[in-house]
């Protein structure tokens, strides 16, 4: 199977079939802020669309499968109808670029089903494609441990890495790639996908617990920093990066 990193998305290819993976979206976050009295000037939706456009055109404009790893929305409640509609619009748009769209339910996705109902999509807890299992990352499922599964592709953690150089420091979204082995179970190759959410990079695993359902040895995971022009830069193991 071929594994490619297209900007902040993951592209997997096997037997001519391609699957694009999109990390946590948190659409509606700015609406929540707005409702609590913060005049945030951002069109998250527009940014998501343009980011997505860039990525999908980088892979030929169309893929067979697109998987959204959960936390599509941030929260409902005080969100205006417009916001709700935007989320529907985004999902519909993404759907035009693939044959099959799979939406994984994340911990923020409570009350997502009315939206999906409207679109005729069912959210799942996990999804298995060939030897790859896709899950959000906050919950364990027995099926993920199946011997037929070699790879786990997860979201939830919003991995990012802060790079220091004397007086300067910068934070970047990144993929974390490593292995996970539980006693008595088969070893899994784990790929943690960064959040798709624009403007905020994410969480540095050296500073905070990414709160996965499993105890990953993240310090020994490989760090692939999301760079510009859909590129990704290899930085080696997390523990080797100067902190």
């Amino acid at each position: 199977m071929k594994i490619d990193y297209i900007g902040k998305c993951l592209l997997l290819e096997e037997n001519g079939e391609r699957t694009l993976v999109i990390g946590d979206l948190h659409l509606g976050y700015e609406g929540a802020m707005r409702a609590s009295g913060v005049m945030i000037p951002v069109k998250l939706y527009d940014k998501c669309v343009s980011d997505f456009d860039l990525i999908i055109s980088g892979v030929g404009g169309f893929v067979e499968n697109i998987i959204m790893l959960g936390d599509i929305k941030h929260e409902f409640g005080f969100i205006l109808q417009d916001e709700w509609n935007l989320i529907v619009k985004f999902i519909e748009y993404v759907r035009t670029r693939c044959s099959k769209l799979v939406i994984i339910e994340g911990n923020h996705d409570v009350v997502l089903f009315p939206v999906l109902n409207k679109l005729g999509i069912v959210a799942v807890d996990f999804f298995i494609w060939n030897s790859v299992a896709f899950a959000h990352g906050d919950k364990k499922f027995d099926e993920l441990y199946s011997d037929n599964v070699n790879y786990w592709v997860l979201g939830h953690g919003h991995p990012a890495v802060t790079l220091y150089e004397g007086v300067k420091k910068e934070k970047y979204k990144c993929f974390l790639v490593g292995v996970y082995k539980e006693t008595g179970k088969k070893k899994k190759e784990v790929i943690i996908v960064p959040s798709f959410f624009p403007l905020i990079e994410g969480t540095d695993a050296r500073e905070f617990d990414l709160r996965f359902a499993w105890e990953f040895d993240l310090m020994n995971f490989e760090v692939k920093v999301v760079s510009s022009n859909l590129k990704v830069l290899d930085f080696g193991k997390l523990r080797k990066i100067k902190y």
Binding site: Y29, E30, M33, S36, G37, V38, M39, I40, L199, I200
Partner: peptide, 23 residues
């Protein structure tokens, strides 16, 4: 641009800091 007190609720400084990061 960040309201400490809005619609009857007040924001802790921590929340203000978090929001201002995004802002």
């Amino acid at each position: 641009m960040i309201l400490r007190n809005y619609k009857g609720r007040s924001k802790s400084v921590g929340k203000q800091q978090m929001h201002s990061h995004f802002l």
